[in-house]
Amino acid sequence: MKSTNSISVSVNGQVHEREVESRLLLSDFLRHELGLTGTHVGCEHGVCGACTIQLDGEPVRSCLLFAVQTDGHSITTVEGLAEDRDHLHPIQQAFWEAHGLQCGYCTPGILMTMIPFLEQNPDPSEQEIRKALSGNLCRCTGYQHIVDAVSLAARKMKAINSGS
C-alpha cells in the first residue's frame, strides 16, 4: 500500500522533502504545500497551459503530473526566474515593456514555455512565435502584444548571450 509517499524535489534550487498523497497533482503541491502561487491553475486537463512549469529544464503541464512523480527531479517555476524585485528575467522585463499581459493569469505559463523556446530558437519569426504559443490560452490580449513581447524578449536574451 503506497497511498502516501515521501518525496525529495528541488524547486527553484531549494530541496523540499515532503510526505504527499499519491493523487496530489504537482500544480496543487506547488501552490498549497510550497505556497508558490505563481503557477496558475486553469483547466486542469492539459489544454490551457496556465500551469506550465519546467521539469528538468523542459516545459510540462503541472496539472498532468502527480507530485510523487517529481521525486528526485528538479523544477523551475515562475518564482525562480527573477533574481529579485529589481532584476527581472529579460522575458519578464520584455512582457512589462511591451504590455504582454492584461489580467496576467496565463502569463506564468507562457513565460515558462517561451524561455526554453527562445533558448533553442534565438531568432524566431512571428509565425514561429505564434506556433510556439499555441499551447497557451490567453483570453484578454488577442495575443498581439504577447507576440511583440516574446519578440522583444528574443532580442534582449540574444543581446545578453552575445555579451553586449
Binding site: 497511498s3 509517499n5 498523497e21 493523487r23 502527480f66 510523487v68
Partner: peptide, 10 residues
C-alpha cells in the same frame, strides 16, 4: 485535488 485516491507504485 481532483483525482480519486489510488496506490502508487514506481
Amino acid at each position: 485535488m481532483k483525482p480519486a485516491s489510488f496506490d502508487y507504485h514506481r
